[in-house]
Design a protein around this nucleic acid. Sequence first.
DNA 1: CACCATCACTTGCTTAATCAAGTGAAGAGT
DNA 2: ACTCTTCACTTGATTAAGCAAGTGATGGTG
Lengths: 147, 147
Amino acid sequence: MKNHTLGTLTWIRMMRFTTQSNQLSNEFLKRFDLTTAQFDVLIQIKTYAPITQSQLAEKVTVTQGGMSRMLARLEKEGLIERKQNWKTKTILLTAKGEQILQAATPSQLHFQSSFFEDVLTEEEIKSLYTMMTKLEKHSRAKHLPPV
Amino acid sequence: MKNHTLGTLTWIRMMRFTTQSNQLSNEFLKRFDLTTAQFDVLIQIKTYAPITQSQLAEKVTVTQGGMSRMLARLEKEGLIERKQNWKTKTILLTAKGEQILQAATPSQLHFQSSFFEDVLTEEEIKSLYTMMTKLEKHSRAKHLPPV
DNA sequence: CACCATCACTTGCTTAATCAAGTGAAGAGT
DNA sequence: ACTCTTCACTTGATTAAGCAAGTGATGGTG
């Protein structure tokens, strides 16, 4: 057996870091009445609107069912609008959604990036970014090894 | 406003990577009737046993309530044992727990680390590990900025 | 024209996690 | 000895997500 402990340890630390920072992020976003997942979805909508639900689900790594419910909540709170459009629903931000996003984005970006900027150098962050890009792309394509 | 997009992008990619790889990991561990979280807990128990529930919860970034339920499940399936010991419960692996862990560990380690080894060089993994260590440690200590 | 398949989305059911209130055993203060 | 606090853990209620079956509109085929 090769020595896989380094990868495993890295994986575990990354898991812990993400759950931890996600919790903090959720707590932080409470002041805007959002969760991290919602914020993420809103940003995606803003960036890619008009977009369909399934594309959105794919982008944020969530099932279609999950996305359906998330959007139902966001719609109920008046942050987004779903329009039946041909046989697809296209998603748009409402004015209120725009506004909340405007209010939340700067501090949230600052907060998220502070996790990195507090302890890593500019160089390190760049190289981390490169690695995460590779890793994420790869993980999407990856499939299970045979039994 | 400083440019925080690099940190944010890194954060988002990391979140996506972890949810994605966690899902794959869960799927993988189904063949041992375990979830990633359970595997993680079992490893911690093996490493630190005898250990109390709250220490365990702290280690794996879960609330005490969550840990209570997780351990209840593991106990019901006969993988661990909880002994009332003074006013604390100490957790131990049972023979069955040991055995399942033995069976699962090599392939799981291999699988987890393959996420990294498939796309990064040895050097990169090392530097990633160092960064994750810093990041994790920092995130545990971090608190919310004032409103 | 009638039927079928497909696609995009919804919904019932289950699982797992959080939060906060509850329990019960130890030990401290008077 | 009796109450009070604290500590470690449990548990009820809620929330979010996954899976898989269901719905309803579109378009293709005999």
